[in-house]
């Protein structure tokens, strides 16, 4: 029983972490919270539904198409929601408003295209549940955890081992210096949108079989991802992972012993507690 709770907690934690990671990436490169992040996840899941169910493409092809499409959507968002405002010298608050507008547009557009009712997508494994001791584990959990570990590893490798990744982080630290080191800072911002879009779309594809797919999962999971990023310390990718796992585990435990009805409320109470104790988040750097 306890194993079952832990695994389901880690599973949802991985999803929150992947979305939170997207928040952290965009925040790092542009100092803006992308409230359309959750919609990337929702659109990723929807595209995968279209790919596998409507077009009957093989799983891998559909997954690939979904990641590429959402990465493009993310680039479009940067070009339409952020760059024009930045050029006009708009404040961060206005850019957040712009993101929120896009998030609502996406949600409603998805409702028009895919309908109001939850859709079912296939998991990675054909068998739905397997037994481990006396606990039964959802097989999709393995896919979720696997996807999270692989994508996190790739991103870690990219950021700490490649010159390109280092340059991306450097342009977030100090854009002027990055320019002077020959780094194309705008290109780096676009790259972080691509990575944040693709990682959230992957989260959508793997969470779909667990949560069902509908136009409103973007808001729900997006806001939890935001929570994860804020708990971990806005702008810290590792913090977002820790925040996500913490949130997933606490939610699973509280869900069993109190009620799942309180899960979103709990997420925000946890966020508030972390902010009261450590306003910069677990791994965040204090602005003072």
């Amino acid at each position: 029983m306890i194993l079952q709770i832990i695994i389901s907690g880690i599973t949802m934690g991985c999803i929150y972490a992947m979305v939170g990671f997207g928040f952290a990436l965009v925040f790092n490169s542009s100092q803006i919270m992308n409230f359309a992040q959750g919609e990337f996840l929702m659109l990723g899941a929807m595209m995968h539904y279209t790919g596998t169910v409507v077009l009957k493409l093989p799983f891998i092809v559909s997954l690939f198409l979904s990641l590429v499409t959402i990465a493009l959507v993310a680039v479009l968002i940067e070009a339409l929601a952020i760059n024009p405002l930045r050029k006009k010298g708009a404040s961060i608050v206005m850019m957040v408003c712009s993101f929120i507008s896009f998030s609502i547009i996406f949600k409603n557009l998805a409702e028009v295209i895919w309908g109001k009712y939850p859709l079912v997508i296939q998991g990675f494994f054909s068998q739905e549940i397997f037994n481990l001791g006396n606990s039964s584990i959802q097989s999709q959990s393995v896919a979720v955890i696997g996807a999270a570990v692989v994508s996190m590893f790739l991103l870690w490798y990219f950021f700490s081992k490649t010159m390109f990744g280092m340059a991306l982080v450097a342009s977030a630290f100090n854009p002027k210096m990055a320019h002077l080191c020959g780094v194309n800072v705008r290109g780096m911002i676009i790259t972080s949108f691509i990575l944040s879009g693709a990682s959230s779309a992957l989260a959508g594809v793997v969470v779909g079989p667990i949560s069902f797919v509908s136009s409103f999962i973007g808001f729900d999971l997006g806001i939890k991802g935001f929570c994860a990023a804020a708990i971990g310390g806005m702008g810290s990718p590792v913090g977002a992972i820790i925040g996500g796992l913490l949130l997933g585990l606490l939610e699973a435990v509280l869900g069993v012993y109190i009620s799942t009805a309180y899960s979103t409320i709990m997420a925000f109470i946890i966020l508030l507690v972390v902010l009261y104790v450590r306003p910069q988040g677990i791994l965040g750097v204090s602005s003072r």
Partner: peptide
Amino acid sequence: QNLRMGSYP
């Protein structure tokens, strides 16, 4: 890492 960033161009 800073020196490596210097070699970026």
